[in-house]
Amino acid sequence: MLAWERFKLRRAAAEYAAHGWPVQPGSFLVGRRAGRHSLERRFDCGEPGCRTAACHPAPLPPATAADVVAGYWRVHPYTVLLPTGRAFDVLEVPATLGRAALLGDGFVAARGPVAVAPGDRWMFLVLPGHGVLPELAQQAGVVLHGQGSWVPAPPSPQLGGRVRWELPPEAHGWRPAEPYAVQAIMLDAIGAGPSFSSRQRATWRAAA
């Protein structure tokens, strides 16, 4: 079972790297069932004396080289982490905003890879280097992962379940979404959207 888990994660990491996405090994779940309804589980990065129990990077650098990535997963079933601020940023939002952006109003350019983490946190991979619209920044639970941050990637296990793709990267050619188009759709759905000109909307459609 452990070998199959490691193989599955290594295969996913290799696929991301093959498309130019840097990947980094993250700590992996260890522990045992402590009782009928609870688990004594934590994340282990392999670093002696590390006290961080939540998911965190292992002491290995990000890579895109196939041989390096494959070597990382030869022993441990590391969590697959995607560093942000390089190939893409990640806009992480609650499920209500996430579902709204997928339903949207037809902006093709707003579509890009979308992952969902346990706890119903939706993660939109968007073009890097952009901010969050003020109206969206005021909403609870909105986080922009940029330079120096990371997110766990499917099919990595987390406490409470696995990260999964809601909209897989291949659905739109492994391209990140246009960040402000995604945000505008979210805001429109909750009635808090700024006004965007027809020229802006046409530009988003043309970028698809």
Rank of each mutant, 00 (worst) to 15 (best):
P61T: 00
H76D: 08
L103I: 15
L60H: 01
T96M: 11
A101T: 07
A65I: 04
V68P: 02
A54Q: 15
P61S: 00
L82W: 05
T64C: 05
L91N: 10
A87L: 11
L82T: 04
H56Q: 06
G85V: 09
P77R: 06
D89E: 09
A95N: 09
R99W: 12
T64G: 03
A100G: 03
V69L: 07
A95D: 10
G104L: 09
C55N: 12
P62K: 06
V75F: 14
L91P: 08
L91G: 10
F88I: 10
D105S: 12
G98W: 11
A54P: 11
Y78D: 04
V93H: 09
R74P: 08
L60T: 00
L91K: 09
H56I: 06
W73H: 00
A58D: 01
P59C: 08
A100M: 04
D67A: 10
Y78A: 06
T64S: 05
V69H: 00
Y72K: 01
T84C: 13
F107V: 15
A87T: 13
D89G: 06
A101I: 08
A100K: 00
A63L: 04
G71Y: 10
P83V: 06
T84F: 05
A65R: 10
W73D: 00
A66S: 13
V93D: 09
P94M: 04
G104Y: 05
A63E: 02
L102E: 15
A65L: 08
R99Y: 11
V68F: 04
L82N: 03
F88M: 14
L91E: 07
R74M: 13
D89K: 05
P57S: 12
L82E: 02
G104H: 05
A66V: 09
A87F: 11
R99Q: 12
V75S: 15
T79F: 03
V80S: 00
